[in-house]
């Protein structure tokens, strides 16, 4: 395989890149990655959680499943999922953000969303990180779709609908490979991941030609 680019993304920061149809994005991490993508020829065509769930007819996706756009086109295919069997990726959460942390703190609910009242609260999160990663493409904040939250294992009781954060994450950095089904702008945030045992860690983003 031919490496096109290989980037280290520090904890609680963002990354963006262009990739061609057929190329593969490898995301490697042991904490949450918020991931979004856009059609590089029409940046208004974005990844969409709802279309993705309904196309695959399930709320959790893994190897072989496709990421869909709001305009109903396949954007990416999951080629490999090393988290499979250990945990699930999330399609329920939006992005964390400075204002979101502040609201949870003000309402005394940090423990419901994260794992403790006495944890340090960052002034920014994935929403700001994705804005930074997408800066070269002039994407407005409200145009950033709700992401595929890689390695964000969440416990959902499908009888009651209850969502509970979980500290379940990869024990060491593992990867998810996503093949581009169209030319794309891709962006990822190394989530501050306040529910992970040691909080958010750096991630590696690699684009290669198979």
């Amino acid at each position: 395989m031919k490496i096109i680019r290989d980037d280290h993304v520090p904890a609680n920061s963002g990354w963006g890149a262009e990739m061609k149809q057929g190329q593969v994005l490898r995301l490697t991490a042991m904490t949450i990655i918020d991931f979004v993508c856009f059609n590089s020829h029409n940046l208004k065509e974005r990844f969409d959680q709802a279309r993705t769930k309904v196309y695959n007819m399930k709320i959790w996706i893994s190897t072989g499943d496709k990421l869909f756009s709001k305009l109903n086109n396949p954007m990416m295919t999951i080629l490999e999922d090393q988290f499979a069997g250990k945990g699930l990726h999330d399609l329920q959460y939006g992005t964390c953000s400075g204002p979101r942390f502040a609201r949870a703190k003000a309402e005394g609910r940090l423990n419901q969303y994260h794992h403790g009242h006495d944890i340090p609260i960052p002034d920014h999160g994935c929403w700001e990180n994705l804005q930074a990663g997408l800066k070269p493409w002039n994407i407005r904040p409200e145009e950033i779709p709700s992401p595929l939250n890689v390695f964000q294992h969440v416990d959902i009781d499908t009888a009651t609908g209850e969502i509970r954060h979980s500290p379940k994450r990869p024990e060491k950095p593992i990867c998810v490979d996503l093949r581009a089904e169209m030319d794309l702008v891709v962006a990822a945030s190394a989530c501050p991941d306040l529910a992970a045992p040691k909080f958010g860690q750096p991630i590696q983003a690699t684009i290669y030609e198979p």
Partner: peptide, 13 residues
Amino acid sequence: DVARTRIYNLNIY
């Protein structure tokens, strides 16, 4: 926004 709504309420229904 459906995602913000789910997570604020911590419930999918």
